[in-house]
Design a protein around this nucleic acid. Structure first.
Lengths: 105, 105
DNA sequence: GTAAACCGGTTTGTAATGCAAACTGGTTTA
DNA sequence: TAAACCAGTTTGCATTACAAACCGGTTTAC
């Protein structure tokens, strides 16, 4: 009866981290975003944002392209297909958990 | 516009951990549960379960009572009022996030 | 009677994590 | 030419989740 709940324990930990869920969610709404835009939107420190982006890139959820705007470095981030899929799955699992346990009071 | 999302970053980390969310959710459905029951329901190892329960107790979300069933130790766990409240708030925040970002594909 | 297996847990060791401060390579300003 | 600034990255550290090893006690096997 309480059993389908155990699926909680195999949530994608990469996405479950709030900062990364935030980043992915923002990216899912735009075609691409640069580093400073993401920093403003998330409120994360540079170091923190950089680390999370690296993690998301390693995992294949985000593609990072380094270029220049004039003479200044510019880091452009896009959600990959894998990232979209993983995010959708994560949302699905959370949705299901919330539904199954929606017995208020 | 994407701004209310930033509230993700102040989710209660104690509850956000899937194993603990699972424990709290189970406890919210019963008046009390013993250690072995929780272990079976969650599928956690003893060590892991013990550590999470200690954490939940320190935080004041769960009350733990040690007694005996016959000659064997028996650990009984109950969700506290604070635990209920914190769980409800967490669920509320997640619900809100899901609603705000429900624009599929 | 005592050694081995079992019971219900707790403690310990370890690798992974999130975070911000300090750093980097380069550019603009004074 | 030094100081301040820019867009990030790396480093150091404290916290964490996890399972293996341990623990005090009880039952079973011999």
């Amino acid at each position: 009866m309480t059993d389908g709940l155990r699926s909680l324990t195999d949530l994608d930990r990469i996405i479950h981290e709030p900062a990364r869920l935030l980043i992915l969610t923002i990216l899912s709404g735009v075609v691409s975003a640069d580093f400073l835009f993401l920093q403003r939107e998330t409120g994360l420190t540079k170091g923190n944002l950089s680390a999370h982006l690296s993690r998301l890139e390693e995992t294949g959820y985000v593609r990072i392209e380094k270029t220049f705007k004039g003479k200044l470095p510019l880091t452009i981030c896009k959600l990959t297909a894998a990232g979209q899929k993983a995010l959708a799955k994560y949302r699905q699992q959370v949705q299901e958990f919330m539904k199954k346990t929606a017995d208020a009071n």
